[in-house]
Write a protein that binds this DNA or RNA. Structure first.
Lengths: 124, 124
DNA sequence: TTATTATTTGCGCAAGTAGTTAAATAGTCA
DNA sequence: TGACTATTTAACTACTTGCGCAAATAATAA
């Protein structure tokens, strides 16, 4: 991504933007198992169909999912498996970050890092 | 990322959000070469130092860069190399998407797909 | 001390966005 | 045809965010 023109950066940013929303990640998470229609996803996520429909439109526009109309329902499924690789990378980064935070807390608490739960009186 | 609790999804979304901004991607791009201070980045990006400083604060909070105060300047450098892996993945996805779009256009235009200059920003 | 430079922060504006309800659209079935 | 269901779109509200300007803070130099 070195000598990318400005327009490319905008594209990449837009792609990340599509993933930068908890509800959309939740949708992608449910689609990991199998394709689902709008109403189903709405119920699973706990939002209105209208809202989920718009999220799905956005994900479709960015090529993350594909839509297939069947009967009077619209079924969506994952189009770009790279999504999960991305999420795994991010989870790894966040994990390392939390580890560092735990170390930091341990320095003050004088307690071992492992127990985790008991280690956080002051943080977050 | 399968059975993630809702809170985790929010964390992941926030991480993606940090990358979902062209200016911040530009900053990360410049930091790829070497560490730089705020004013330098501001000049390179064409924004005020105030603006860049805020972006750097956000990137720091998400563990993407680290700050080191030296003299009366603040030098920033990449803290999480995963950033570039993420960007490469996204570039790949966008590239494939553009390829598909080119195929689609070719079906109408009757033109070969290969030549296209815009076929793929791809990756390093 | 004061002056100078670099960075950060408070504030306001403009633009973008997630969510709702209600209306419009599309497909199925009698 | 009309009734019914599923999805999409429109209109709206509340909230977030990128930006610049100006003031505040921090470090160096005179």
């Amino acid at each position: 991504m070195n000598g990318l023109p400005n327009e490319a950066l905008t594209q990449v940013a837009a792609y990340f933007q599509a993933l930068a929303e908890p509800t959309r990640l939740q949708i992608l998470n449910y689609l990991r198992e199998k394709e689902r229609n709008v109403g189903e996803l709405a119920q699973l996520c706990g939002y209105t169909s209208a809202n989920i429909s718009r999220h799905l439109t956005l994900l479709t526009q960015h090529g993350l999912v594909t839509r297939e109309s069947r009967g009077n329902s619209a079924f969506y499924k994952i189009a770009d498996p790279a999504v999960y690789a991305l999420c795994d990378l991010v989870c790894g980064s966040i994990g390392r970050q939390l580890d560092r935070a735990a170390e930091g807390r341990a320095m003050f608490a004088g307690a071992p890092v492992a127990p985790a739960v008991a280690t956080a009186p002051a943080a977050d």
